[in-house]
Amino acid sequence: MDAAPLPLDLTRRPFLASEALARGVTRKRLRARDLWTPTRGVRSVDLPTSIVEQARAFAAAAPTEFAFSHVTAAQLLGIPLPYAVEEDCRVHIVTPTSANRIRRAEVQGHRGLESREVVDVVGLPVVAPADTWVDLGEYVGPGKPVGLDDLIVAGDAVVNIVGGTEPLRHAVECRVRPRGKVTLTYAIPRIRVGSWSPMETRARLMVLRAGLPEPSLNADVLSRTGEWLGCGDLVWREQRVVGEYQGVEFHTRPLDRRHDGVRREGIEHGDWVVVEIAAEDVFDTHCRAAKLRELAGHLGVNPHVLDVLGSGPQFLAPPQFARPRRPRR
């Protein structure tokens, strides 16, 4: 026998079981197999799978004052996270310090909503990008999943939203002893507007740490007569050199390779040098050394002065950057 139909609006959104009961839906109907229980007291016709759907399901049962925070906020805002953090399937929320902490198996509760700015994302209350970036400092440190370069990658994404690093600096300064403050503070001057992907950020960090000149990010590439030839990931205008990160996602299909070849040919005909950068050039020591020497040759930098060892990925801020601890009495 088919289950009794639900009110039409309840089939289009997660809803409280108490709301359905008040509208005449029976308890037996709420236990039917065609309904999901994404969190205690909530039902939905469809299984929530995306982060937006999961957040909406929890929002149906959430307290009056709350916002999605930490990992959940970063995912809703499109801030890239390392895989170890993205595997956290819990919904993170923050409530006022004076409120009781939410206790649900699928929820990680935090306090301090009053110290964070909140924005609307697809109708959901979400901790603002700069404050979310500061919250990622809680995952930083030895044995934790987020490192310095991960923070810079996330910061590059955030400043593309907020327009610069000053909101990040302000968000750090407004907190009272935020976790990871040393690494957050060290990361801010190394964050740039204009990076379009995590690996573009990591490639930029590599060349800067090696001692090469800083490139423009995703800048226009023009011929000597002013004709637009394309947009380059890393662009050294004076030396007429373009660094292009070749990611697996967008540059491995035959159609992608043909498009990249035509584009590269056009840029090179405009009297530019194109240097392709792959993931192994960033993460593998020998590949990184060879790629840096190649770039140095095109940029007119003596390869013998490159800091190849110091150009690799970094997980912690340098020890000398940490604030001195007060001696114990």
Rank of each mutant, 00 (worst) to 15 (best):
R101A: 15
I161Y: 01
M199H: 10
G123L: 08
R175P: 04
L151R: 12
V121S: 09
G180S: 11
V193G: 05
V159Q: 00
P198M: 05
V119E: 05
L124N: 07
L184K: 11
T183N: 11
D150C: 06
L151Q: 10
S115A: 14
S195Y: 00
Q108L: 14
M199E: 10
T97Q: 14
R116Y: 13
M199F: 09
H110W: 06
S98C: 12
I102N: 07
P198G: 11
V146D: 08
V119G: 01
A128P: 11
I161W: 04
L184P: 09
R192T: 06
D131E: 07
A128R: 11
W133M: 09
L148Y: 03
V119M: 02
S197R: 06
G147N: 08
N100S: 13
D150M: 04
P189M: 10
P142R: 14
V134T: 13
T132Y: 06
V107I: 15
T132M: 02
V140T: 12
Y186I: 09
T97G: 10
R101L: 15
Y139V: 03
L168Y: 10
L151P: 11
T97E: 10
G180C: 07
L124D: 04
V193A: 02
M199G: 06
R116I: 04
D135A: 14
P167S: 07
V182G: 10
Y139A: 07
H170C: 01
L184E: 08
V107P: 05
R104C: 09
A154G: 03
G109C: 12
D150V: 08
P198F: 02
L124I: 05
K181D: 13
V134H: 11
G155K: 00
P142T: 08
E117A: 13
V107E: 10
P167A: 00
C174W: 12
Y139R: 12
A157K: 01
L113C: 07
I188S: 09
P198L: 08
V162K: 07
V153A: 00
G155W: 04
D156W: 00
R111K: 15
L148N: 00
A130L: 08
V182W: 12
G143A: 04
R192G: 03
I161D: 12
L124C: 05
P198T: 03
G123A: 05
D150N: 13
C174E: 14
A105P: 06
P142G: 06
G180Y: 10
G164C: 00
V119F: 01
V159P: 00
V153P: 01
S195K: 02
R169K: 14
G141K: 10
E200P: 07
D156F: 03
V122R: 15
W196N: 12
R111T: 11
D120F: 01
L113D: 03
A99L: 05
I161A: 13
K144Q: 14
G163M: 05
H170Y: 13
N160A: 14
